[in-house]
Simulated assay, not measured.
Amino acid sequence: MSITLILLAVAAVFIGALMRSMFGFGEAIVSMPLLTLLPIPLHTSVSLIGLAGLTVALLTVFSGWRHIERPVLIRLAVSTVIGIPVGLIVLNTIPSYIITSILGIFLIGYGAYCLLKKNLSKAIDHPLLNSRGWVWPFGFVSGVLGSAYNINGVPVMIYGTLRRWNPERLRGTLQAHFLVSGVLVVAGHALGGLWTTDAFVLYAYSIPAILLATALGVLLNKRIPARKFERILFVIIIALGILLLFPRG
């Protein structure tokens, strides 16, 4: 790998880690599309972001542990385990260009959902998905998306939004889920043969960037109006999703 490629990969990891530490989510959603635009094998990108995401989770989970929805977290963990092998099968059997196209469509839909959810929340004045059983499909999808795309937090965020959790409960449960599912996803990547030497080399170079991004994100989170930056983030997510739909030579 060239120095330029390493620096670009580290920059992608840094931006994703900064988004996660600022908003409580968004690392893989930002980093994965950026990495797929580089001449890096998809398996290397997936395992790199899995390791980076687990590192960020370890650094941030303790700040919100008091607000964790523990019964939900347990059910999420169990259903995530069931979904992880399905995601690995998808990753190992479907061509990478199809996966990146699916990821692009998913990002466009998710970004649009996040931009509209404020109006949706106003229209809904009571929590939805009151049955405890609803957490199982969301956890399963989290496992599938986590092992295939490292986007294991998106289903949980959607679930929490529909349940109308307050920001502290949503952020705390998300961070705890990232830690638990991160361990499971990284283990799945190892057992599924996704780990490569290049992934560990890039991860080693990325560690200082992850530490800096985490500290900077916590600082910015306290000083910058998060809602304004969330809208910008979701617009960027949609733009990245559109970019992934264009064929690349």
Rank of each mutant, 00 (worst) to 15 (best):
G109K: 05
V135Q: 01
T36C: 15
S101Y: 10
A112D: 02
S47T: 15
Y113C: 02
I224C: 04
A239W: 14
I105K: 02
I29T: 13
L73R: 01
T55N: 07
Y149F: 15
S63M: 02
K222D: 09
L244I: 07
S147F: 07
T4W: 07
L243M: 14
W134A: 07
R223F: 04
H189M: 06
L34W: 13
R227N: 15
F138H: 06
L18C: 06
H177P: 02
M22N: 06
L244Y: 09
Y97V: 04
L170Y: 08
S121P: 00
L211E: 00
W134D: 01
H177D: 12
W195A: 04
L54K: 06
F106N: 01
L220I: 13
A209L: 00
P85Y: 00
L243W: 10
H177R: 05
G64M: 08
T55H: 06
N152L: 14
V154L: 12
I102G: 14
F62Q: 10
V90G: 02
F229K: 07
L191F: 07
N119C: 01
L103D: 08
L5M: 03
I210R: 00
R248F: 11
V13M: 10
N119W: 10
I158S: 12
N166S: 12
A12D: 03
W65Q: 04
I15E: 04
R70P: 02
Y203R: 00
A11H: 03
L128G: 01
R171L: 14
V144I: 14
F178A: 08
I68K: 02
L219N: 08
A239C: 15
L128S: 02
N92W: 00
T80P: 02
V61W: 13
I40N: 15
N150H: 11
R169P: 02
L145T: 10
I84Y: 10
I40Q: 15
H43Q: 15
D125A: 04
F234V: 12
R223G: 03
